[in-house]
């Protein structure tokens, strides 16, 4: 769950961000307490607090005195646009580097992407019933 690569507080902040992006933590919904994070991830509560505070400073979470932490309105959209900026750097650059290593041209890569995307899309379309038919 928690890796050695980066400070734990950053990993906690990123997990909360992921939960906001995929809707597990809705806007205006309450976020688990730092003690709950600490117990769940088996980390120091001070470290969990540091991660949560990082998101408070960014305006992603806000504090309700005496009640707890909540997800700010508009947090999801802001996180998605931030992640999109990083997407090119974190996903496309390594992809292009590996493709170049294997002699796959950008044009071929584009074709591969399109084929792969339509294959995953069609695999996801059949209902569970029709998939059962295919199997039998």
């Amino acid at each position: 769950m928690i890796t050695d690569e980066r400070p734990i507080f950053m990993q906690i902040a990123e997990r909360v961000e992921n939960d906001i992006i995929d809707g597990a933590l809705p806007e205006e919904g309450q976020v688990p307490s730092t003690n709950e994070f600490a117990a769940f991830y088996r980390i120091n509560p001070a470290t969990a607090l540091k991660g949560v505070n990082l998101l408070v400073d960014d305006g992603i979470l806000y504090k309700k005195r005496g009640i707890g932490m909540f997800v700010s309105s508009g947090a999801r959209e802001r996180l998605v646009s931030k992640r999109r900026d990083r997407f090119v750097h974190e996903y496309l650059h390594p992809l292009l580097a590996e493709a170049a290593k294997l002699g796959i041209s950008p044009t071929q890569l584009g074709e591969l992407l399109r084929d792969e995307a339509s294959a995953t899309a069609s695999a996801a379309t059949p209902t569970s019933a029709s998939r059962k038919e295919q199997l039998s």
Binding site: D4, E5, R6, P7, I8, F9, N44, T47
Partner: peptide
């Protein structure tokens, strides 16, 4: 030889 926050040592 080390007197540091644990999280600062990570990474």
């Amino acid at each position: 030889i080390i007197d540091e926050e644990a999280d600062a040592l990570r990474g």
